[in-house]
Amino acid sequence: MNDPADCAALHIRVPSAGGASSHILKESLMATETHVEELEHIEELDAIIAAGQGTAGALIPVLQKTQQLYGYLPQTALRRIAETLKIPFSEVAGVVTFYSYFTTVPRGEHTARVCLGTACYVRGGKEVLRGLEEKLAISPGDTTEDRHFSLEIGRCFGACGLAPVVMVDDVVHQRVNPNYINELLVQYAVRDDADETEEPS
């Protein structure tokens, strides 16, 4: 029974390499395999969860505080949250994967979120994103090897009049010029090893 060959009778689709699904595959692999290490700060975590126990709608605040504690949401912490709050793990994961704010992979010291909401999009958000991708040499969702910077795409920070905007940690940078990305990054001590000649004075 359950011979995989049996699936031949089904109409099988092979997931294409890259594209939309690869991001999900990668993240689910990361979530299920990488972060099963012993959890630090267990007492702080338990205090965060305990504060939410018995309160309807506690999940999101608990997740926010947990992410502040670890810098990301480790799998073991999510399991502990699900068990203690008596919420199915699938639901916890559903909330974590729904909000772009939450991340299950370790982030860099700083996180840049490039807004690609409508106003920012039409006023050059894409070019800003491309500039950051080139300077940091990473793609959205990734972190630099030295764990200094992470890059994310955001969906409207409510600052459309100042478009295009980039939010680094909790500071909103307005009317970002894609040609002056270095000026933005230098404030966060990103050295521009990539190309000295292009750096504006």
């Binding site: 939309a20 991001h23 999900i24 993240e27 689910s28 979530a31 299920t32 199915p88 793990f89 699938s90 639901e91 916890v92 994961a93 559903g94 994967t97 729904f98 299950t104």
Partner: peptide, 17 residues
Amino acid sequence: FPQYRGYQTQMAPAFAS
């Protein structure tokens, strides 16, 4: 439970495992 959002949404186990 619904996992991810938009076009990526799947009715699936946690993290679409």
